[in-house]
Amino acid sequence: MTPFVQARGIGKSFGGLKALDGVDLDIHQGEVLALLGDNGAGKSTFVKILAGAQPQSRGEIRIEGRPVAFASPHDAARAGIATIYQELALSENLNVVENVFLGREVVRRVLGFPWLRRRAMRQRVDTLLRELDAHIPDPLARVGGMSGGQRQAVAIARALDQGGRLVIMDEPTAALAVAETRKVLKLVRQLAARNCAVILISHNIGDVFEVADRMAVFRRGRKIAERQRAATTPDEIVALITGAHPDARTADLAA
């Protein structure tokens, strides 16, 4: 089966600085792929290129086998890549339904005005939240009063409704309490179970080992290792990230 995304030889330079160099990576549907690495290792740059926020300097991205060039996040979204931003692009003064459909409301045009079809949107959100098994008692409650985990659920529902087939999550559990973190990790598995591809950036090795099927470690702009979860240990991954692992040293010397 063709991977949903194939990245080949992706490089990104900022002036003389190589932020990303020769990264090859496949992303499969129904799989949670974790990107790990120190700050500045290149994982965020890689994700920004995938999300259409920055163009790559070198290399090619193929979606379902076809080469693509994203000029904007909008292009990426149309290709089925949805990004959940760290600062969650939600408006706290709007409720759950309003946020899920913000900017893409379901409307009926009468006399040129885009009248909201509230019931249609409400039903769609109810279905999404049920499928995600998200615990949001009242979809008409304002997002401003919700917990971090509930907000993640809203953002995920939004990504799904946009037809996201690859959902990119940047540190989704960074600011969450323990119980909330568990809920978000469960949501991540739900996404994979729906045959979505998920890219997860996280610094929390425990979280990563709980949800990821596969891990890719970035170091100094290169992808230095790729491991199936069953075939590795937290110690090995930490050693790869910090540079203590022999593979990491080899990569450092080659660079």
Binding site: L94, E98, L102, G103, W115, L116
Partner: peptide, 9 residues
């Protein structure tokens, strides 16, 4: 309307 939502957002 959607426009009203956009303004509030």
């Amino acid at each position: 309307t959607a426009w009203g939502r956009w303004v509030r957002a």
